[in-house]
Design a protein around this nucleic acid. Structure first.
Lengths: 202, 202
DNA sequence: GTCTATACACCGATAGAC
DNA sequence: GTCTATCGGTGTATAGAC
């Protein structure tokens, strides 16, 4: 039994390592620019050996990586929002801070470039869980604040999508050194802009 | 001479058509997902025939398309801003309206996915004109409004990048039918959010 | 579980006939 | 200016030895 368990644990952690390495590469460079050889190299093995751990091929590997990633983000988002209490600013700052601890998501590239590469039907099947995990928690935070009368009533899907796009822009600004601050500071700045507006008031 | 001129005109317009078709495909699907065969098919010719009009190959074709596109956007942005007068809200609304008449730019995908595919040195060489054409006019509009005391002083590069990202998000929302309105209406909504904030005031 | 070797498909690009 | 034919390179995936 002990050997069996060790065997399972070893297999599990080996698979875990494959998924983590693949996730990092896919998320940083995008599906099209990461080859199976790249993943295998990062794991220190030959390209063909990778198929022992990912018998379903590249598309299936991406699907598994994608599903784990959105589950991870869903949990992180929901926890950050719940722990922040009911105030929208506190919630969005918590989301921003949590994102700052994560690898850049590149949400728009993922949705408009990676997913369509899998085919239209496949992309459609992944769009729903992606929405539920990444947009829905933020959308609900906006919708609840609007229902409570704390913010103006605006399309909450538009607000959630714009917020995720701004987080992408923050990561892009940091990578290009366009922005003057770090990711979390820039994201917090944009939270204040979205809530208070840029206009100077008397 | 007449024959010669006609010949030049015909060659010029034929090349024009190649660049327009390639631009549409590259901008909609991204560099990696558009093959030379796709471009040739859309032009009604064989893949090899396309090399008569694009002897430099795919990378060179993308560069030309890219340079024309950013020149087009630079002119459009600067004209829209100049025609709108000094008020920042009018300027951003004018930019939004002008964008609504254009094919979705997919700014973030272009910068994080298409350009790195050309190689790091090439991507670096294109980043500067892309910044000057796409970000600089908007950045300057924010900076001028801040200098005039009309808006809070925030990092203008962060604001410009975020605004372009929001325009991407608007196009994404429309393509996914997440948003409830059309592109221009959603963009105008987000301009008001950025300037006035979401918070309800007494 | 990793390796070498290789089949297969796709894409970019060139040569040369018409 | 467009075509057919073809080469070379790259990336996915499989077969089978160890």
């Amino acid at each position: 039994m002990e050997d069996g368990e060790r065997g399972q644990i070893a297999a599990s952690t080996a698979r875990e390592r494959v998924l983590e390495v693949a996730a990092r590469l896919f998320q940083e460079h995008g599906l099209a620019r990461v080859t199976m050889r790249d993943v295998a190299d990062a794991l220190g093995m030959r390209q063909a050996s990778l198929y022992h751990h990912a018998p379903g091929g590249k598309a299936q590997l991406y699907r598994e990586v994608f599903e784990r990633m959105i589950a991870h983000h869903r949990a992180g988002l929901e926890h950050a929002i719940a722990a922040a209490g009911p105030d929208l600013r506190a919630r969005l700052r918590a989301v921003s801070s949590w994102y700052g601890t994560q690898q850049p998501l590149n949400f728009l590239r993922m949705m408009t470039s990676d997913m369509p590469s899998l085919g239209d039907d496949e992309a459609e099947a992944l769009a729903a869980p992606a929405y539920a995990a990444l947009m829905r928690p933020i959308r609900d935070a906006f919708a609840e604040a609007a229902a409570a009368g704390a913010i103006e009533a605006r399309d909450p899907d538009l607000l959630a999508g714009s917020f995720l796009a701004v987080l992408d822009a923050v990561d892009f600004a940091e990578s290009r050194a366009y922005g003057s601050a770090d990711r979390v500071a820039m994201a917090h700045t944009m939270v204040d802009v979205l809530l208070d507006g840029l206009t100077v008031r008397a």
